[in-house]
Simulated scan of single mutants.
Amino acid sequence: MSSLAYQGHAWLQAPTLAPALWFGLGTAVFPLFVMQPAMGAGFASSRTPNPLKNCTKSLANHLAFGCGLYVAALAVSSLAWV
Rank of each mutant, 00 (worst) to 15 (best):
G24K: 02
L4N: 02
A41T: 00
S58V: 02
N50L: 10
A10K: 09
A41N: 13
T16A: 09
R47P: 01
L17F: 02
P51R: 04
S46N: 07
A72K: 07
H9L: 12
C67M: 11
L21W: 02
A80R: 12
F65A: 12
A44K: 10
F30E: 06
S78R: 15
A80G: 11
S3M: 02
C67E: 02
A73W: 01
G66D: 09
H62A: 05
F33H: 10
T16P: 03
H62P: 02
S45Y: 14
A73Q: 05
A28M: 03
G8D: 04
M35G: 04
A64R: 05
Q7N: 12
S58W: 03
F43H: 11
A75K: 09
G40E: 06
H9F: 09
W11A: 08
G26E: 03
Q36T: 11
V82Q: 13
A80S: 15
P15N: 07
G68P: 03
N50I: 01
M39I: 11
A44P: 06
V82E: 04
C67V: 15
N61K: 00
M1A: 13
H62W: 07
T48D: 08
Q36S: 06
V71D: 00
W11I: 01
A18R: 12
V76L: 15
L52Y: 07
N50K: 06
S46A: 14
N54H: 04
A28S: 15
Q13G: 01
Q36L: 12
A20V: 02
F33N: 08
A5V: 10
A73P: 09
C55I: 10
P31W: 08
W22R: 11
M39N: 11
F23Q: 08
L12E: 09
P49C: 04
C67D: 00
A72V: 05
Y70T: 05
T48Q: 13
A38F: 12
Q7K: 08
A14Y: 03
A60R: 02
A10Q: 14
M1S: 14
A60W: 00
N61V: 11
N54F: 01
L74F: 00
A5Y: 08
S78T: 06
P15C: 06
S45L: 05
V82S: 12
A41D: 13
A5D: 06
L32N: 11
P49H: 02
F43T: 13
L4R: 10
N61F: 11
A20F: 00
L21K: 02
S2E: 06
P19H: 05
Q7C: 15
A64Y: 01
L63S: 04
A28N: 02
W22Q: 08
Y70H: 15
F30I: 15
A73K: 07
C67R: 00
G68R: 06
L69P: 01
C55G: 10
S78N: 14
T16D: 04
M35I: 15
V82M: 12
F33D: 05
T48M: 12
L32H: 03
A10I: 02
G40K: 08
L63A: 14
C67F: 08
F33Y: 15
